[in-house]
Nucleic acid binder design. Structure first.
Lengths: 337, 337
DNA sequence: TTGTAGGCGTTATCAC
DNA sequence: GTGATAACGCCTACAA
């Protein structure tokens, strides 16, 4: 593969001049410039970005660590980040961790070694203190979908408690009183936040906090199915279920179907996330929309701001960001009385 | 950020020795090794992968160009590739193109400049001849989901014609005769292949080739909905619809619903892809399963083989791969008579 | 086993 | 405007 020296030789100029026409910042006489360009063509010259990065110590890469490549959630998140960084000429280097703590650590290290210019982190297993540590000894970074105490300015997250409150309040508003909640794994911050929002609304409404109304599940269709089956069998008088994500809500649909219960006639269901096919279910799923792509975009923008600031000490708003989820009312909730 | 020289100095050894303990290939005396490691710890040393890549001319990155980051299809594809390359210590660098020709070209160039060790290409807009050209002047590469004449050994793809034949034959087997086909955009290779499979089966069954039974659409739920609406309004006696992907099949479901038609009682539907939620629809969607992740895995493996071969002239099977889709029978097709 | 020195492909700082 | 030349951080013969 041709190098800058080959081009210089063929064009009869110095490497420095070739470099100048590559970068296009400093002026080069037109005759020489075109000669150089011709030589580049002839040799199929492609500048070596690695060498450039080494020389300038800016790689143009933004590292992103996520759980799964094959999940609509992370797809949207990546999209959002990409949309924010692409106009600044940066690109994405992704590392997936399958939510494994060891792999999360490895990923951060890996992207660091690759000298990314910045990091967007979505981690589950890493503890707050670990994250603080990483933030201190690593690249400029933004933490997404999580609020880490002490790192607020680096965090972009969705207000899960608020989302859960919206969902629960909606059910109460239309007359439900026995409202169950199917949660995600409770070791996840998100699940606990959503549970807390649900409980807060019940409490404020003066409704009894029946422990049997809360069942922990797995954020999958199968999980939702099994949990709903158990719930509807064991607990009496449930008229509504708040499912902490849409996949589980779909499981609830299927469970109701198998039990001969109609949604929303017999059981009302509210989901969480508003994944792309929520609107296509029968009945169309009422849910809480998380602005996932927006979150990615905000994270990317925040990071870009930090980088600019580092470069130029230009004053930039560097505050973290909390996004507001919103209720999407469709057809899976029935008005009581 | 600490460099290898800093470590060398602190440990009182030469850079070469530090390099040796980093790479771990050549032997270093235990006492010195541990001294070096201690120094690395102390300095939070992280080897600069860019410099390593420059020196060794192997970056450990596999470039992948895809249409969209936020699509379950590409998610699975990426997953498959990752699964194949990760054990070999390689990682993924993704570039998304939104199916735009210019961006597809840019992406290939971009990943080339980044000196990826190999490429996995999913392109729509690039022509066969362009791909041949790229293949000649670029990195080792594998083309996915497409069979490029002259580049068969580099292609991993799914047999779309076969898939369409399976779907159509299934409908005929259970007694359908007026079978419509909603296609994707016909400028896409895939759409044409699937259409061709559909037509071949009709022909062999001696069924009339009614042009009005074929309607071009857009591979989206909305596209399927609109096309089905038009189709069921304008064309008589249709008892079954072969939808060239699952999203459109969902659109067909919705259209039938709005027209007061029952699936499968009034209209039978077969989809294509078997995306994750196909099994959760009501009725559960009969469809053709594309082994997308397998395709990614096969592509990744093929590429790894090529790289090994380049390195060592080791004889490796370097044949391309055609994957067989399979029919998944669920509940959206009704047996006639 | 360890050190020396040259090279990987660019950019950047000087002079001219 | 253009050309030497020294970084950038690491690897790898080769020599010791």
């Amino acid at each position: 593969m041709a190098t800058i020296s080959d081009v210089a030789e063929l064009a009869g100029v110095s490497k420095a001049t070739v470099s100048r026409v590559i970068r296009g910042k400093t002026r080069v006489s037109d005759t020489i410039a075109s000669r150089v360009r011709k030589a580049m063509e002839a040799l199929h010259f492609q500048p070596n970005a690695l060498a450039q990065a080494l020389a300038t110590s800016r790689s143009g890469g933004i590292g992103m660590v996520i759980n799964e490549l094959s999940s609509p959630y992370y797809g949207l998140l990546m999209c959002g980040v990409e949309r924010a960084i692409e106009p600044r000429g940066m690109h994405l280097v992704v590392a997936s961790t399958h939510a494994d703590g060891e792999r999360e650590r490895d990923a951060v290290e890996f992207l660091g070694q690759r000298r990314c210019d910045g990091l967007v982190l979505h981690t589950n297993a890493l503890s707050d203190t670990e994250l603080v540590e990483i933030c201190a000894h690593s690249l400029p970074l933004v933490i997404v979908n999580r609020r880490v105490p002490g790192l607020e300015a680096c965090c972009v997250y969705s207000d899960d408690r608020l989302g859960a409150r919206l969902a629960t309040q909606h059910l109460i508003d239309v007359g439900h009183r026995r409202i169950a909640c199917i949660t995600g794994p409770l070791h996840l911050h998100q699940s606990r936040q959503r549970l807390s929002g649900y409980q807060a609304v019940l409490r404020r409404a003066g409704l009894p906090m029946d422990r049997s109304l809360v069942v922990e599940s797995t954020f999958t269709v199968e999980g939702g199915y099994a949990s709903a089956l158990a719930l509807l069998r064991d607990v009496k008088d449930v008229t509504a279920i708040f499912s902490q994500n849409d996949q589980m809500a779909l499981g609830v649909f299927n469970a109701c179907n198998d039990l001969g219960l109609d949604v929303p006639e017999d059981i009302s269901v509210v989901g969480f996330d508003d994944i792309d096919w929520a609107r296509y279910l029968h009945p169309r799923l009422s849910t809480v929309r998380q602005h996932v792509e927006e979150m990615g975009f905000a994270a990317g923008s925040l990071l870009m701001g930090k980088l600019l600031q580092n470069d130029a000490d230009r004053p930039t708003s560097k505050a973290g960001h909390r996004l507001q989820p919103s209720l999407v009312v469709r057809d899976s909730v029935r008005r009581l009385t």
